[in-house]
């Protein structure tokens, strides 16, 4: 099977007053129709990696890679128009907080319809039908009502479902979800993950799930990349997580308090300088 996405030696850096800051260094992986988790703490470069694939890095970022290809298309050399056409239609991204990623002055339904009509030639009526179907697919109980609501009129969980509906309406082949549930309450979080899980399975999408929560990611994904200081320190099958080799991965797993595991004090990470190398 040829991979859908190939990332080879991806590097992202910023010019700062004190010199060049290398936020991502030498990241390589491939992705088929599977779920890949990228885990790391703040500043690990996990979000930038996702954004670089989408072509959404800030203008000050300098992105280089030996190869960054989606379905044979070299993303770094592709003209902006082609990248725009890819975004939304074949590549899609769900961000952490729906409050900031939905347009506040446009109703939810219209945003979904607009997204669909940007990428596909469909009639207004058909677009509306499909948007309603999509809202139903993300388990919104009364799609017709939510269709006309504005983002501030819905709860966080509802907003995130609407966001997912919008991102999946054009049937992308690859979905990048950057902390899609971190702003949500635990019970809502599970519902949203359940929806995401089923849609990815049913539609055979590839998924990159970016999160700070190693346990959550490993319960959701097939494979996990653990990032630290801009590098991938370990790549591991989610089922094998208990046998992680890298001390950072193990430390990250151990330091989270879990009900029923009495450890006082909690083990803390001893960050070693050589992990950065």
């Amino acid at each position: 099977m040829t991979p859908m996405l190939t990332v080879e030696d991806l590097a992202i850096s910023f010019a700062t007053r004190t010199g060049r800051f290398e936020a991502v260094r030498g990241v390589s992986f491939t992705l088929g129709r599977e779920r890949l988790g990228i885990v790391g703490e703040s500043g690990s470069g996990k979000s930038l990696t996702g954004r670089a694939i989408m072509g959404l890095t800030p203008p000050s970022a300098d992105v280089t890679a030996r190869r960054l290809a989606f379905d044979g298309i070299d993303l770094l050399t592709a003209p902006p128009a082609q990248r725009r056409a890819l975004r939304g239609a074949r590549l899609s991204m769900v961000l952490q907080d729906p409050k900031y990623s939905l347009d506040p002055v446009m109703s939810i339904g219209r945003q979904i319809v607009e997204t669909l009509r940007t990428h596909e030639r469909v009639s207004r009526r058909e677009a509306r039908e499909r948007a309603l179907d999509m809202l139903a697919a993300v388990q919104i109980e009364n799609p017709a009502r939510v269709f006309d609501l504005y983002p501030h009129e819905v709860s966080g969980g509802m907003g995130q479902r609407a966001m997912i509906a919008m991102m999946l309406i054009a049937n992308p082949e690859l979905l990048i979800a950057d902390e899609p549930t971190s702003a949500l309450d635990v019970t809502v979080q599970l519902e949203v993950l359940g929806i995401l899980d089923r849609l990815v399975t049913d539609r055979g999408m590839g998924l990159i799930f970016i999160s700070h929560d190693l346990r959550l990611v490993s319960s959701f994904c097939d494979r996990v990349l653990v990032m630290y200081a801009g590098r991938v320190v370990e790549e591991i099958a989610a089922a094998e997580l208990a046998h992680a080799r890298h001390p950072y991965t193990r430390g990250l797993l151990a330091c989270v308090p879990v009900p029923g595991h009495d450890r006082h004090p909690l083990p803390v990470l001893d960050r070693r300088p050589e992990w950065r190398l």
Partner: peptide, 17 residues
Amino acid sequence: RKLMVASAGFRRGSDGH
């Protein structure tokens, strides 16, 4: 009980309800 279940993490196959 629901909170306790939810905080245990995601399980494939359950839809969160």
